[in-house]
Every structure is written in C-alpha cells, then in structure tokens.
C-alpha cells in the first residue's frame, strides 16, 4: 500500500479556502500534489450530489473548505454547508462507507499554511485508510 497515492477532490470557497490555497502557492508553501480543486463561490454552494458523485466515482477523499463560523462572505453559507456535510456523513456511514473520507474544514483566506497542513494531514490519513472501495468500480 506504500505506493498508493490518494485522490482528493476539494470543493473550496472562493473567498477563504481557495484564496488560502492561492496564498500557499504564492508563499511557495508546499503540500502533496494529491488534491484537485474545484472553486465554489461559497461552501454553501456545494450541492451534495457533487460529493456523492466524487465518492462513487472513486475519490479517496473529499475536502470541503469554507469560512470560519461567523465569517461567511455570504452570511450563513458555511452553516448550511455544515448541515449538508452532516447529512452526507450520516448517509455514507449508514451505507457502510467511511464518512471520515469526507472532510469539512474552516480555512480562512490568510491560512495558507493551514490549507497546506490540512492537505498534508488528509493525504496521510487517507494513505492509512487505503484506496476508496469505489476506486475503478465499474458497476456503481
């Protein structure tokens, strides 16, 4: 399992976590190349179907990045996202899928280092877990 490289699909809020990822780049803060970023205007823009799609298509992890509680650029999108993630976790867990492959993290625009740390941490955690059971699964 040592050569297993996890695939993470990240849905990042434009105003915070995406900007943090930019900042990590600008500051040359290095993090593992395992994440593919989809920019949302707000974590509240995350349709749960996107997460379901990523999971069933075999993403080893899904990272959702939003603004810290109280800091949402659109007032409350992050709280709504948090509810949705809770629903996603419950559904996945009931279906026998490890919900801890779907991470929600509050990462502000200035937390480039924290973004990089989060990706690093997530990659390590996913390496521990091994590949998603849906990886290369043709019959979903």
């Amino acid at each position: 399992m040592t050569d297993f490289e996890p695939r993470i699909v990240a849905f990042l809020c434009n105003w915070c976590t995406y900007t943090a990822s930019d900042l990590a780049g600008t500051s040359r803060i290095q993090y593992p190349p395992n994440v593919r970023i989809i920019r949302l205007m707000c974590s509240g823009q995350l349709d749960p179907i996107y997460v379901a799609k990523a999971v069933l298509e075999g993403a080893d992890g899904v990272l959702i990045g939003g603004c810290h509680p109280g800091d949402c650029h659109y007032q409350s999108g992050n709280y709504k996202a948090r509810r949705r993630v809770a629903i996603i976790h419950q559904v996945l867990e009931q279906l026998g899928f490890d919900p801890d492959r779907v991470w929600l993290r509050w990462i502000s625009a200035s937390e480039g280092q924290y973004f990089a740390d989060t990706v690093t941490e997530m990659v390590a955690a996913l390496k521990e877990k091994g590949p998603s059971p849906f990886r290369r699964q043709w019959s979903v």
Partner: peptide, 30 residues
C-alpha cells in the same frame, strides 16, 4: 452565492456561470 442552487434538489435553481453539468464534469476530470 449559489446557496439557492445547492439547496434546490432538481437543478431548477441555477447559476449560468456554474452549471451542474459543468460541476459534475469537473469531478469526473478531477
């Protein structure tokens, strides 16, 4: 902000700059 798009169960709410087909294609490509 798109929060109305995410909460709409069947895609009746949309943002032309970020259509659901596009989002799902991004996930695939990722």
């Amino acid at each position: 902000c798109g929060v109305c798009v995410a909460v709409c169960p069947n895609g009746a709410s949309r943002q032309p700059a970020f259509e659901p087909v596009q989002a799902l294609a991004l996930v695939d490509a990722a």
